[in-house]
Computed example of a mutant assay.
Amino acid sequence: MKELKAAYTKKFGEHLKELIQRHNTDVQTVASIGNIESKQVYRIISAENEPKITTLLPIAKGLGIEMKVLFDFDFDFSVEGFVEK
């Protein structure tokens, strides 16, 4: 299960980075609008921290998107080694 969480956290960070780029903004701007420190966003992007709701709400605000968009990415939970048999 630890590997699954790590893989999901990494994929989430990649998706967040892509969203920031797609919205033609940067981490500092997103953090500033959301009133959080930019290092919190960087740590999610680099998969150092698991995304927490208390950080994701300001990130969504900073991007001007609904929370559900942050979770709208493909993740294969059936990858070998992740599915319990």
Rank of each mutant, 00 (worst) to 15 (best):
T29E: 12
A47W: 02
G81C: 08
S46T: 15
L4I: 08
S78W: 03
L70G: 00
G13F: 05
L4H: 04
E37S: 13
G64H: 02
K11P: 01
Y8E: 02
E80N: 06
K61L: 13
L16Y: 08
V79T: 15
A31F: 12
I45Q: 11
K2A: 01
V83F: 03
G64D: 01
I65D: 01
D72V: 08
S46G: 05
G62H: 00
E66C: 03
R22T: 12
L70N: 02
K68M: 04
F75G: 00
K85R: 07
K11R: 09
F77D: 00
E84I: 07
D72L: 09
Y8H: 09
E50G: 12
V30M: 13
K2F: 00
F73L: 07
D74M: 02
N24P: 05
K17L: 09
K61A: 09
Q28R: 11
K17I: 00
K5N: 11
E84L: 11
H23D: 02
I44F: 11
I59Y: 05
F73W: 05
P58F: 03
E48P: 01
G62Y: 00
I20M: 09
L56C: 08
I33L: 04
I36R: 03
F73D: 04
E37D: 15
V27E: 07
L16S: 12
G64N: 01
E84Y: 10
A6M: 14
Q40R: 13
H15L: 10
F75M: 02
D26V: 00
I33K: 06
I36P: 02
A60H: 11
G13M: 07
A60G: 09
T29K: 14
I45D: 10
F12R: 03
E37C: 10
E66A: 13
F73T: 04
Q40G: 05
I59F: 06
L57N: 07
F73E: 03
I20V: 13
K68H: 12
Q40W: 12
A60Q: 10
E14R: 08
K68G: 02
I59V: 15
L57F: 07
